[in-house]
Simulated assay, not measured.
Amino acid sequence: MTTRELARKIGALEVIRVSKTNSSKQPFDFLFVIDFEATCWESADRKTKCPEIIEFPAVLYDVKNGEIVDEFQEYVMPTENPKLSDFCTQLTGIQQNQVDTGVPLSTCLFLFMKWVNEKKKLYGMEFPNSDDKAEKTCAFATWSDWDLGICFKNECNRKRLTYAKIFRKWIDIRHLYKFYFKKPFNGLSGALSELGLTFEGKEHCGLHDARNTAKLVGRMIDNGAILQLTRC
């Protein structure tokens, strides 16, 4: 018997119930859910080294139908600290040969934007801060502000890469979760568990984290959450 099953049996499991909101009421039709993995070190080295993206994944989530309709993933070659730490390899599962044969961040951004533009055209959608108009809307979504607001932004500045306007607005799913459900939780897997879901795959694999964030979004919508930009 699992801990959740035991808690339910003895009446110690608190179930969150919020009135459902139809997905058609949501302001966004699609989400590009991003979850980067970056170079990292033990605490002693964190203050002297800057994280570089080494896995650049995204899933395209259809809000109305509640499903992932496409995925993007590239491994990225770090140039400031090319050698992965043992800590980083153990945490993320990313191996040295994967980043050695990866693409530079500039190339990854080119490939990513090509993929994004193809999906925009295919589904007839546009970002809210775009100069163009479309029938449907889309937005970036992340688990916390770290991915786009800290890691990606800082790396673009250091490497003199364009921090495009569309990356400057996104939905922080962790922030929305706290706002709507007001329950203590331990990371993404804890938030999933609180809403009766389980993490599928390997934690700190960027693609798996993105998939699970999208799954959490679907459950949050089912329980009444309204998607909204949290960083503009």
Rank of each mutant, 00 (worst) to 15 (best):
P78N: 00
F181R: 08
T89M: 11
T92K: 02
K119N: 14
E118S: 12
K49V: 08
E155R: 08
F127N: 07
A139E: 04
H175T: 11
N97K: 15
T137C: 11
L84Y: 01
L91R: 07
V103R: 10
Q98R: 10
N65F: 08
K178Q: 11
A134F: 00
I54Y: 00
Y163N: 11
P51R: 00
K64C: 13
E55R: 02
A58W: 04
R174W: 13
F56I: 13
K133F: 12
E52S: 04
G102H: 07
P184E: 15
L60D: 03
Q98H: 04
L161C: 13
S85K: 00
W143M: 05
T89V: 14
V116I: 15
S130V: 05
Q98I: 08
D172S: 12
P82M: 03
I68S: 02
L91K: 13
A164D: 12
Q73H: 12
K169H: 07
C88K: 02
T107W: 06
C156P: 08
I54S: 04
E52K: 00
M77H: 11
L60F: 14
N97W: 15
D147C: 10
T142E: 00
T137W: 06
N186D: 13
L161K: 01
D62E: 02
Y123P: 04
F152K: 13
D132N: 04
Q90W: 09
T162H: 09
N117L: 10
P82V: 02
D132W: 06
K133V: 14
P78M: 01
L122Q: 14
T107F: 05
I166C: 05
I53H: 00
F56W: 10
L111Y: 15
D131G: 14
T101G: 09
M77V: 15
P51E: 07
